[in-house]
Design a protein around this nucleic acid. Sequence first.
DNA 1: AGTTAATGCACCATCGATTGTGCAAGCGCA
DNA 2: TGCGCTTGCACAATCGATGGTGCATTAACT
Lengths: 352, 352
Amino acid sequence: MDQQFKKKATIYDLSVLSGSSPSTVSAVLNGTWRKRRIKESTAETILSLAERHQYTTNLQARGLRRSRSGLVGLMLPIHDNRYFSAMAQTFEGHVRGRGQCPVVVSASRDPEEERRTAETLISYSIDKLFIVGATDPDGVHEVCEAAGLRHINIDLPGAKAHSVISDNYEGARMLTEAIIRQFGNDDPLRPDELFLFGGRNDHASRERIAAFHATKRALLGADPDDGVQSSGYSPDITLRAFEAFSQRHGKLPRALFINSSINMEGLLRFMAGRPAEMFSELVVGCYDYDPFASFLPFPVIMVRQNFEAMIAKAFELINEPPTAPQIFLIAPELIQPRSALKGPLDTLKDIA
Amino acid sequence: MDQQFKKKATIYDLSVLSGSSPSTVSAVLNGTWRKRRIKESTAETILSLAERHQYTTNLQARGLRRSRSGLVGLMLPIHDNRYFSAMAQTFEGHVRGRGQCPVVVSASRDPEEERRTAETLISYSIDKLFIVGATDPDGVHEVCEAAGLRHINIDLPGAKAHSVISDNYEGARMLTEAIIRQFGNDDPLRPDELFLFGGRNDHASRERIAAFHATKRALLGADPDDGVQSSGYSPDITLRAFEAFSQRHGKLPRALFINSSINMEGLLRFMAGRPAEMFSELVVGCYDYDPFASFLPFPVIMVRQNFEAMIAKAFELINEPPTAPQIFLIAPELIQPRSALKGPLDTLKDIA
DNA sequence: AGTTAATGCACCATCGATTGTGCAAGCGCA
DNA sequence: TGCGCTTGCACAATCGATGGTGCATTAACT
């Protein structure tokens, strides 16, 4: 019955009910009452009233007054991807652990959208912003800077704020090497049989491509310069790249370095409708980890970016006093084919 | 230079600069100025000042005054899953299209956490809440109801608010049938060769299990009653279920009905370290769609829940005047092995 | 000229919580 | 009794935007 359909209780309601002033009620409810020398018994009265009337703080009012909201933002390129969604999962755990409220939004890898999204979040007075895989991190930085908002880049670096990123060069080096070593000595891979698909003109892609070239040259002795087919972060564009390649050469290469799981979906689209046998000799290296991809009918070597470490490092940095922007590299891990790793979900409890 | 390190501009700043009152500035900036009969020239002055000083509305202040925030919430069980993250992606598109700000949070399938999360969101005066796959939808309902918050269940139904869910019975029927038909007439599947793994005691699992039993009985003539191994929504528990089964029977069944992609990850964990040949005869039906899973080295028939339609229907319903709670079934689609479908990402543009 | 109506905007209370300040009552002590 | 200190709390301004109300001006019209 109580407050069934009435509006939510406020400190003013409790103030009337308890006979104390609103400021006393406020202090009791937000925990600053000892500092304000409120009697213990007064506090108890108010707390029990609050409970009885199901009081909950209006966080917008608090946020307005304090000019921060208790919200912590995570800006992703997209949701629908294991790498980013695993990151979101890990991020939530951290934020919840600090008693704040995580807000996860995506900005579609569109610089304009990224800035708009940041501005919207700022309008809600979020306390911190973690910028993941932004196409234009420095654009977002300007927006945050102007609002005095603490922020940090993850996955793709910016020049104007700290960045925590995967060691893309080393990851791609390991991956390229692993692809090459996957072929035995009887029938070793030739330089013109290993191609890279996917990627844009972003920092990660550039590093990976550089490592790809260097490693090919180092291990295979040569590196024909048509070995890279940038196809953005889009399954369909990647599909078309495979189709074009296959049209030109009559088949796919024996070995592929695929820049991300999104590009890998382009390969799946290419495979769909084509006989499985066409791919039985294929060896794929993919710069991303997805448990299902790891068990495809051909060897898929993957790179698992250590997003837990990246998020942890980012939280560490964002709380430190600001210094000159720096890039922190986090080592990724090479994952052999047919590996089903634990993920952030494994820490959740479940019924038996 | 302008406002470089000053606080953000407010309507009061603009009011001083423009010589108009704060209320006039407010009206101009929020678009209600025609209704308030503000002169066009006044509006123009203020708008240009706003632009020059990079004014942005403090949405917490607006939210406090209007007692709604422009935030629309999506509560997921988890992020790290293609089904749910695809849903988040689609949801964001809808919310953005309506000029509001999407907030996606997860609640770990924990009833307590679900309620707490809802309360937190309510404290921020969110306008609407979409509750996806909640373990205790009715618990969340109470919280929303008490706050007068519009809300709707998706994926798992509640008794006290509208629910938009997959037609789990029909989906499982199709899936079970497809699994059975996957075996030719030479060596047809026997009833004791098809097992269901995964699921909890939730509505979806119950429906699927019922359809599984009924379809087995209808098509195979019998249905031994140990055919179902509930193992929650946890890869590891599912792994243990497979290990136990394999210990008991010396091998896995020839055919598996797997309740979700999460349980499917349990199968992957089982496969890891075991020779691929062990699974060459396996046929799997999975109630979920994941493009990579679709191309595993054995036939994987999948059910793709139509989350786009579910989200669309939910948006339709949540804006209608409330009526008695109803359940709306959305037909899922049976996906043949080796299918790489388009997803929500395909609507994003990408550089070529 | 005088009345009415429309125009253009200012005033002010309000949303709910926070926080600096001030003051009365109670107490110890000379 | 009187001074000063502590205890316990109330007061009131404030965060930034909103929207109902009402008051001048000017325009329209008899």
